[in-house]
Design a protein around this nucleic acid. Structure first.
Length: 129
RNA sequence: CUACAAACCCGAACUAUCGUGCUACUGAAAAGUAGUAAGGAAAGUCUGGACAACAUAGAGCAAUUUACCAGUGAAUAGCUGGUUAUGCAAAAGCAUAAAGACAGUGCCACAGAAAAUAACUACCUCAAACUAUUGAGGAAAAGGUGAAAACGUAAGGUAAGAGCUUACGAUAUUUUGCAGUAAUGUAAGAUAUGGGUAAACCUUAAAUGUUGCAAUGCCACGUAUAGAAACGCUUGAGGGCUGCUCGUCCAAGUUUCAGGGUAGGCAGCAAUAGAUUGUGAUAGUAAUAUUACAACAAGAUAAAUGAUAGUUUAGAAACAGAAUCCGGCUUAUGAGGUUUGUAGUAAU
RNA sequence: CGGGUGGUGGCGCAGUCCGGUAGCGUACUUGUAUGGGGUGCAAGGGGUCGCUGGUUCGAAUCCAGUCCACCCGA
């Protein structure tokens, strides 16, 4: 039985070229405290249907431990709520690159992110259509 | 017991579920199983090396750094022990400093006569003048200023005075004896006493080749074998990773502009190997060294350690995230514990 | 990873090399001029010189540590 709530190496957005394209051409929207950039690409650009990256500004958080902590929390919440997005993308026969940027200036609680994440996924699906 | 001081320790553990990097195994694949996974500072980048590239790395100047003694170490501006001075503390103890101001140059506001080959007031001698002073010289005791004023006190001495002389004392240098490996201490003697500042320039001694893993070696992919300008082709442009000069070596292309392409991977790089890690023994006051046994223990690249629930504990809350690797320094750090010392109080 | 620059009244900057008085513009306050406002003129207030130590008789200035902001190379 394959796992559902995964977030492994193949699902991470890693290509430098693709990232540049994403920020140059992709669309974006904000669901406080997270800014979402995304770009639809042709099929077979990468192995999985969705690649997603996570980022925190060094300007807002000086300490590396804080940045690591936020990235971990975002990843954790994404991991638990990603299922609807994957199902939708598969039905459209395309692939998507997404980048989640944390823009607030204070450390978040995991519980608030857990509440926000479904809204983000929902909005993302709407924007794709 | 209280207060203080010093040297250290620790930096949560376990179970379950979901999830991550790496390695091994299984599998056609999807995936699964097992093992393993941040720090004492991983930080600051202040330093010393390893390693790599470059003329087997040259000479001079410049620049930078260090500066009591001994030991230690791969090495250092580190560490350990010791010496002297100053400051803080009731003490234990802590902090800072220690080549040179008789090599030279500079600076020392205000005040003061004067801030460095001293002379304003006052003192003394001589001459003029005749009671008001003026000139020449002597001398550096008294005065006030200042952060700092030309060794201190007393006596002798003198025209007046003065280390000018003597006694006692202070400081510095030095000789000899004793103690110590030495810095130095101590006793006796001799000589000297004209400020401070070297975290001002500087002098002396010693040290430093430069650049750094984005080094370096290799594979793959791709563009325009295309365009313009300048300099040059042995009468030598330019280059050889050093601020300048010299010397020396290479040398037929080099530099700039506009435009185009790529921005992936392997090694280096993470362990059968080491200035490695842990425990013990021996030598040493200690830093450290020698040795025995055991271990092999993060290795990512938009960058892996997280989440939830429960149990233990008085409590789980500090500072904080490896990026080529080690040594040191500096800075940040919760709660608690151990040992030693000093002072006080009480009891025996 | 490596290298560099800056921090001085509310704001923008001198002064730091070569140590003794902190200054300029603008803003602010008061007065004056005007019927009133602006411009002008005159006067005034306001600064732990990022922080902590040290050197010195004396530190914005010299030295060491530390915090913050910004820039450059690849």
């Amino acid at each position: 039985m394959p796992k559902i709530f995964t977030y492994n190496k193949q699902e991470k957005l890693k290509s430098r070229k693709l990232l540049e394209e994403l920020f140059a051409q992709g669309n974006s929207f904000v669901v406080h405290p997270i800014k979402v950039n995304f770009l639809l690409v042709e099929n077979n650009t990468f192995k999985t249907s969705v690649q997603i990256g996570v980022g925190v500004s060094k300007r807002n958080f000086k300490k590396a431990t804080d940045r690591n902590r936020i990235k971990r929390l975002i990843r954790e919440s994404y991991r638990l709520h990603k299922l609807p997005l994957h199902q939708h993308i598969k039905s459209t026969n395309k692939q998507i690159a997404v980048f989640l940027l944390y823009i607030d200036k204070e450390l978040p609680q995991l519980s608030t992110l857990q509440i926000k994440m479904p809204f983000i996924i929902e909005k993302l699906i709407k924007q794709i259509n």
